[in-house]
């Protein structure tokens, strides 16, 4: 009796059935599985391991299906780990591999935010200006102004920061903080100018009263000695006292006024940034 073979159709059907059958057992494809593992590590805050697994994914992803996602997440992991240079490198890669303008924009914004954190303010502003110029129909302008505000704030220009925040719907609270900070800051130029006019005034303006009074005293005394020497027609003596005493105190008083104003401003800036870090609930770089 002739043995009966199953038809080809039947065999192909069984192959398809097997494929379908195996799929749920095997779970997702290996690349997806690897991506999920990297995502889990990222979400757990294990950024070093996350970078490794995203890089492994990239290495085996010959069709570059996960190129953008992994570039972006590697950059984010580096950013979270404080490795800003590496983060920026991968954000730029992500910009290039972005599948759509939306993802490209997201990478560019993250690149800018990392530059703000890295305190490379000129670069952040340059990228923001480019983004603003590329902005279609003024879309995203609100967010661009918001990050410009942050860039200026980290660049210690609170007046311009306040101006940029005022142009963003989400920048109201930061605008007020920046205005208050700017109002509380000392003018270095003013401190120097009043010290030129009245020695010690700049030091008193910056709250250093004792130094201000001492400075005034030294300038008056040495000025008096200098003038009295000239009055006695002892020109060389007057020049010597003027150069070695009076001008030293006079120059010192101006330099001190400027130094104290800068120091005080730094204190005020740090206080503001510390406050924002701990109390501001909006989006931060």
């Amino acid at each position: 009796m002739e043995r009966k073979f199953p038809s080809i159709k039947l065999l192909l059907l069984s192959a398809a059935a097997l494929l379908i059958f195996f799929s749920p057992l095997r779970g997702q494809n290996p690349l997806q599985k690897q991506f999920d593992m990297a995502e889990r590590l990222y979400n757990e805050g294990l950024y070093f391991d996350a970078v490794t697994e995203y890089k492994r994914l990239q290495f085996f992803d010959s069709l570059k299906q996960y190129e953008y996602a992994s570039d972006f997440k590697i950059a984010m992991s580096y950013k979270m780990g404080g490795m800003f240079d590496n983060a920026i490198l991968y954000f730029v890669k992500a910009e290039k591999s972005a599948p759509s303008p939306k993802e490209k924009y997201e990478s560019e914004i993250q690149n800018i935010r990392t530059n703000i954190l890295r305190k490379t303010t000129p670069r952040a502003l340059e990228l923001l200006a480019k983004l603003e110029a590329d902005s279609v129909n003024g879309s995203n302008l609100d967010e661009i102004h918001y990050w410009k505000g942050w860039a200026y704030m980290f660049g210690d220009d609170f007046a311009r920061a306040a101006l940029e925040f005022s142009l963003s719907a989400q920048g109201e609270e930061l605008k007020n903080i920046c205005l208050a900070t700017d109002a509380g800051k000392y003018s270095v130029t003013f401190a120097k100018v009043i010290s030129y006019i009245l020695p010690g005034a700049g030091e008193i303006y910056t709250g250093n009263y004792l130094q201000g009074i001492l400075s005034l005293g030294w300038n008056l005394a040495s000025g008096y000695w200098m003038v009295s020497s000239f009055a006695e027609k002892k020109v060389l003596e007057g020049i010597l006292i003027g150069d070695l005493l009076f001008l030293r105190f006079y120059r010192g008083n101006i330099q001190n006024a400027s130094k104290y104003a800068v120091e005080k401003n730094l204190e005020i800036t740090n206080k503001t940034l510390f406050y924002i870090q701990n109390n501001y609930r909006g989006i931060k770089p």
């Binding site: 073979f5 199953p6 065999l11 069984s14 195996f22 799929s23 095997r26």
Partner: peptide
């Protein structure tokens, strides 16, 4: 039947269903 079975196994391997790539 043997040939067809081999083709099916080959297809399965090709699609990574039987022996998925172990990274």
């Amino acid at each position: 039947l043997r040939y067809l079975s081999l083709i099916i196994i080959y297809l399965l391997i090709l699609t990574g269903k039987v022996f998925p790539q172990d990274f």
